[in-house]
Amino acid sequence: ICKIPGCTKRYTDPSSLRKHVKTVH
């Protein structure tokens, strides 16, 4: 789960989550 407030994205893969946070936030 993405911990950024207001973001509801969920990831099972930690590397995908990290990439999401870097690119989207």
Rank of each mutant, 00 (worst) to 15 (best):
S16R: 08
I1P: 00
L17I: 02
K9P: 03
H25N: 03
K22W: 11
K9V: 10
S15Q: 15
C7T: 01
P14W: 04
D13V: 01
I4V: 08
V24R: 07
I4N: 13
I1T: 05
L17Q: 02
I4H: 14
P5I: 03
P14R: 05
Y11D: 14
S16G: 08
H25T: 05
K19A: 14
D13W: 00
C2D: 12
H25M: 02
S15T: 10
T8H: 11
S16I: 08
G6S: 02
V21R: 01
V24N: 10
H20E: 09
S15W: 06
Y11G: 08
H20L: 01
G6D: 11
L17G: 04
K22E: 15
C2K: 00
H25L: 01
G6Y: 01
C7K: 01
T12P: 11
K3Q: 09
H20R: 00
V21Y: 06
Y11M: 11
V21G: 06
K19F: 08
K22P: 03
H25F: 00
T12M: 03
G6I: 01
I4R: 00
K3C: 09
P5T: 04
C2A: 03
V21P: 05
R18L: 13
C2W: 00
H25S: 04
R18K: 14
V24A: 14
I1G: 02
I4S: 08
S15N: 12
T23L: 08
K22N: 15
L17W: 03
K22D: 15
T23P: 07
C7R: 01
K22G: 10
T23K: 08
S16F: 07
V21I: 06
I1Q: 04
T23V: 08
R10E: 15
K22Q: 15
T23S: 10
R18T: 12
D13Q: 02
V21D: 10
P14Q: 14
Y11F: 14
P5K: 01
Y11L: 10
V24E: 15
T23W: 05
K3T: 10
H20T: 03
L17E: 12
R18F: 08
D13C: 03
T23R: 07
V24S: 13
S16Y: 05
V21A: 15
S16A: 14
H25V: 02
C2G: 04
P14N: 06
P5N: 04
L17H: 05
V21M: 10
I4A: 06
C7L: 01
H20V: 01
T12H: 03
T12G: 13
L17K: 01
K9Y: 14
C7G: 04
K3G: 07
K3H: 12
I1M: 07
S15A: 14
P5G: 08
C2T: 06
K19L: 13
P5E: 13
K3I: 10
H20W: 00
R18A: 15
P14M: 13
Y11K: 09
Y11C: 15
Y11H: 08
R10L: 06
D13G: 01
P5C: 02
K22R: 12
I1R: 00
P5R: 02
I1C: 08
S15D: 15
T8R: 03
L17N: 04
Y11I: 11
D13M: 03
C2I: 02
G6V: 01
I4C: 07
I4D: 08
K9T: 08
S16V: 11
P14A: 13
T12F: 03
K3A: 04
S15H: 08
K19V: 11
K19D: 15
C2N: 06
T8C: 12
H25A: 06
V21H: 09
C2P: 03
P5H: 03
R10M: 13
K22C: 12
R18V: 14
T12L: 04
D13R: 00
V24P: 05
G6Q: 02
K19C: 13
C2M: 05
H20D: 08
S16C: 10
G6L: 02
I4Q: 08
K22T: 13
V24Y: 07
G6A: 03
H20K: 02
R18M: 15
H20I: 02
Y11V: 09
S15G: 13
K9N: 09
P5F: 06
V21E: 13
I4L: 04
T8G: 12
C7Y: 03
V21T: 09
T23Y: 05
T8A: 07
Y11W: 03
P14I: 05
Y11R: 03
R10Q: 12
I1H: 01
S16W: 02
R18W: 12
V24Q: 13
L17R: 00
I4T: 09
K19N: 15
T23G: 07
S16D: 15
I1E: 10
I1Y: 07
P14K: 07
G6E: 07
I4Y: 12
K9D: 10
G6P: 01
V24D: 15
P14F: 10
T12S: 13
R10I: 09
T23E: 14
G6C: 00
I4E: 12
P14H: 06
V24M: 07
T8P: 03
T8W: 00
C7I: 00
P14D: 12
S15R: 06
G6H: 02
I4P: 02
S15I: 10
V21L: 07
G6F: 01
P14G: 09
T12C: 07
S16E: 14
I4W: 05
G6R: 00
H25P: 05
V24I: 07
S16H: 10
T23A: 11
